[in-house]
Structure formats: structure tokens, C-alpha cells
């Protein structure tokens, strides 16, 4: 029985610079995994490689439910159920909040997996009440926290099998981060498989069952969140 998302020997390059080397990772259905590490450790690159935005070299494997994703472009991965909430929210400024959410629904439209839709505009508005109030505002005219809520909602509208979240807390006030992570907890509790890249280690560890710490593109530490000590994290971050 293989994991829902299975990553093996994943390397990634930007030109001649090797950003990731030999990453191995499993995310099971219903499981949340946190990816932590210092700036430039390759956390975002890992998510972008899984989403298909970074070229996947010949020896590397990314599998979704046993299906190899090499050569599958980003838009098809999204339709297959890999949904990335990108760093910096990346809302479409010329679309309203409602349109931003609807645009992602088209990714799920072609998939007749079991015909059932878990996420709808109303479900997103229930999860993030303020998003409902802002539905007719342009995507560019929101605060950072509101944008992040819309971006997460948009990711959900694509009916993901795996939700990838990149730096949810970046640049947001602690109280806003708390609200967002409360919502993410609800999503995780519903059985969504999640891979969460986060600078805010505390927030990430409260959400995730397992943790992967990267340093300079390599796995520095991996284990159950409950068994990872602060000292081990510090050592993995800075290399002793």
C-alpha cells in the first residue's frame, strides 16, 4: 500500500544551481506533513516541483496515488488533484474574490472521480466568513490575511487530493495566523492530505503529524511531530 503522495530521489535545478537533492517523502491520505527549514533550504522548491512548476529530472519520482507525474504539466497536475496555494498568495488582481474562487473550480470540473464535490463557494464562505463579505471586491484590493484566506479557499475549490501550502503565515500578524491555522486545522480534520511549508515552526508543528526539515536542499531531519525536540530542530536548521 503506497502513500497518496510519494516522492523519491527528487532533485531540482535552477540553471546549474542544485536546489534539491535526493528528497524522499510520503504523505498518506488524511495526513498533514510540515516542511520546515531556513530561508533558501529548498522548501518552496519542493512544493513547486511537486506541483509541476519546476522541471523534474529523469531519475526523480513524484507519484500521486501510484501515478507517476513526470512529464505532466502543472495545469494537468492541478486537475489530477495536486493543489498548491503559492507563496505570496498570488490572487488574480483583475478578478473579483468570487471569480478567483470560481477559476479554480474549473480544475475540478473535468474530473469525474466520484462525481461528488466537497468544496463550493458556500463551503469556502463558511470556513472563512470574511471572504463571503468580500466576494465582489477585486483580488488586488484586500489585506494580506484576507488574501491568504481567499488563496486557501481557491486552493480548496480545485478539489485537491493533496493540498500544498507555501508560507501561509508570511508577513501576517500573529492573531491572523492563528485564525488561518484554526481553519487549516478544520480542513485537516476533514481528512485532507496536506503538505505545509512554514517558517513559523510552532504553528506548523501544531497542525502536522510529521515533520521534514530541509537544509541546503537535503533532508536534515524527519520524524513524528510529537517526538521532534526543539534542540533537534535547531540542530537540523543550522547544522549543529
Amino acid at each position: 500500500m503506497s502513500a497518496l503522495l510519494r516522492v523519491r530521489d527528487l532533485d531540482a535545478y535552477y540553471g546549474h544551481f542544485q536546489a534539491l537533492s535526493g528528497i524522499e517523502l510520503d504523505v498518506d491520505a488524511g495526513e498533514a506533513v510540515a516542511v520546515i527549514g531556513a530561508n533558501g533550504a529548498g522548501k518552496s522548491t519542493l512544493l513547486r516541483a511537486i506541483a509541476g512548476l519546476v522541471a523534474q529530472p529523469a531519475g526523480a519520482h513524484v507519484e500521486l496515488d501510484g501515478v507517476e507525474l513526470r512529464g505532466v504539466p502543472a495545469h494537468r497536475r492541478a486537475r489530477m488533484g495536486v493543489s498548491l496555494v503559492p507563496e505570496g498568495r498570488k490572487l488574480f488582481p483583475s478578478l473579483t474574490v468570487r471569480e478567483n474562487l470560481l477559476i479554480a473550480a474549473s480544475a475540478a470540473a473535468g474530473r469525474s472521480r466520484d462525481g461528488e464535490r466537497r468544496w463550493s463557494l458556500d463551503a469556502v464562505y463558511d470556513l472563512f466568513p470574511n471572504v463571503g463579505r468580500l466576494r465582489d471586491r477585486p483580488g488586488g484590493a484586500l489585506s494580506g490575511g484576507e488574501q491568504q484566506a481567499v488563496a486557501i479557499g481557491r486552493g480548496l475549490m480545485a478539489e485537491p487530493r493533496v493540498l500544498l501550502l507555501d508560507e501561509v503565515s508570511l508577513g501576517l500578524a500573529p492573531v491572523v495566523v492563528e485564525q488561518l491555522y484554526a481553519a487549516l486545522g478544520t480542513i485537516a480534520a476533514s481528512g485532507m492530505a496536506m503538505l505545509v511549508v512554514e517558517q513559523d515552526v510552532g504553528a506548523a508543528l501544531r497542525l502536522a503529524g510529521r515533520v521534514l526539515c530541509l537544509r541546503a536542499g537535503r533532508t536534515a531531519l524527519t520524524g513524528a511531530a510529537s517526538q521532534v525536540t526543539a534542540a533537534a530542530v535547531t540542530a537540523a536548521y543550522f547544522g549543529k
Binding site: A51, G52, L53, P73, A74, H75, R76, A78, R79, S83, L84, P86, K90, F92, P93, S94, L95, E99, L102, I103, A104, S106, A107, A108, G110, R154, A158
Partner: peptide, 18 residues
């Protein structure tokens, strides 16, 4: 809507399945 989104940001549009 897809045209406007792609015009805004083709990479993010791809993440939405476009």
C-alpha cells in the same frame, strides 16, 4: 475569466488547472 487570470499571472493560472 480564464483569459483575464492567465493574462494576470500564467503560472498561478496553471496551478488552477488552466
Amino acid at each position: 475569466r480564464a483569459m483575464r487570470a492567465t493574462s494576470d499571472d500564467p503560472e498561478t493560472a496553471a496551478l488552477m488547472g488552466l
